[in-house]
Amino acid sequence: MIRVMVVDDHPMWRDGVARDLTDEGFEVVATAESVRAVTARVGAVSPDVVLMDMQLPDGTGVDATAAVAQASPSSRVLVLSASAERDDVLAAVKAGASGYLVKSASREELVAAVRATADGQAVFTPGLAGLVLGEFRRIATDGGGDDPELPALTTRETEVLRLVAKGLSARQIGTRLTLSHRTVENHVQSTLRKLQLANRVELTRYAIEHGLDE
């Protein structure tokens, strides 16, 4: 069972999302309404996924995402926000968020996104993934990928990394390379460990910075 923490300062919305997720078989282990509450609770419950609003009364979702990264490093943050502004999306990702959905997403889209986030995938509302990749490419062009000391990846790991950078899911990669979904995930996790990266968003950034997304 996937363990979820729901963070939002609007009680009716927060409780409604928590109820929907519970009905879909998730375990909602905590809710929070502020950065302070997130900081106090997340380490104790260690959720698989933190569903994060961007506007909180004592700070932002960026602040709360940073608090999650420090107190519960294994937790993945999926932003669920009313804002689709470029600066908000990029700030959330740079703080460590694994994905970003706008609140107009359907219940089905939200449920699928939480499951995908728990599986280590980067999930974005259509259009926002391109924005994030564009920013990573800009960083790479400005000199973010100059490190010649690349960890030794196997040929297969490099193939999988290239396809992750193109936005393919594990199942799509498996079909492309004639591998099982589980084998692809094993390659992704091995690559994350070797590169000392936390999630697929960072893996995609790494691939772009080193020219592996072409």
Score class of each variant (00 low, 15 high):
residue 129 A to L: 13
residue 124 F to W: 07
residue 104 S to P: 07
residue 66 A to K: 15
residue 49 V to W: 02
residue 26 F to K: 00
residue 26 F to G: 05
residue 43 G to L: 04
residue 162 R to A: 08
residue 9 D to M: 07
residue 155 T to I: 10
residue 186 N to W: 03
residue 88 D to W: 10
residue 80 L to T: 06
residue 136 F to Y: 15
residue 39 T to A: 14
residue 24 E to Q: 13
residue 121 Q to K: 15
residue 167 G to Y: 06
residue 126 P to I: 12
residue 146 D to F: 02
residue 140 A to M: 02
residue 173 I to W: 02
residue 140 A to T: 04
residue 63 D to F: 10
residue 64 A to D: 02
residue 69 A to H: 12
residue 138 R to K: 14
residue 93 V to Q: 01
residue 184 V to H: 03
residue 145 G to N: 04
residue 174 G to Y: 08
residue 166 K to V: 07
residue 2 I to A: 07
residue 54 M to T: 09
residue 161 L to S: 03
residue 154 T to V: 10
residue 30 A to C: 13
residue 68 V to H: 00
residue 164 V to H: 04
residue 109 E to S: 12
residue 16 G to D: 06
residue 74 S to N: 11
residue 200 R to E: 10
residue 175 T to D: 13
residue 135 E to K: 12
residue 182 R to P: 07
residue 190 S to A: 13
residue 108 E to Q: 14
residue 88 D to H: 11
residue 56 L to E: 00
residue 85 E to Y: 06
residue 74 S to Q: 08
residue 78 L to K: 03
residue 9 D to N: 15
residue 166 K to Q: 07
residue 132 V to K: 02
residue 210 H to S: 12
residue 16 G to C: 08
residue 28 V to K: 13
residue 198 A to T: 12
residue 147 D to R: 02
residue 214 E to L: 04
residue 156 R to G: 08
residue 160 V to R: 00
residue 28 V to C: 13
residue 77 V to A: 04
residue 36 R to M: 13
residue 45 V to S: 07
residue 70 Q to A: 15
residue 151 P to N: 07
residue 27 E to F: 13
residue 28 V to S: 08
residue 68 V to I: 12
residue 180 S to W: 01
residue 53 D to L: 12
residue 118 A to Q: 09
residue 1 M to T: 11
residue 52 M to N: 02
residue 96 G to C: 03
residue 191 T to M: 06
residue 1 M to G: 11
residue 53 D to W: 06
residue 55 Q to E: 09
residue 31 T to Y: 04
residue 102 V to E: 01
residue 107 R to P: 05
residue 205 R to W: 05
residue 70 Q to S: 14
residue 76 R to C: 15
residue 141 T to G: 12
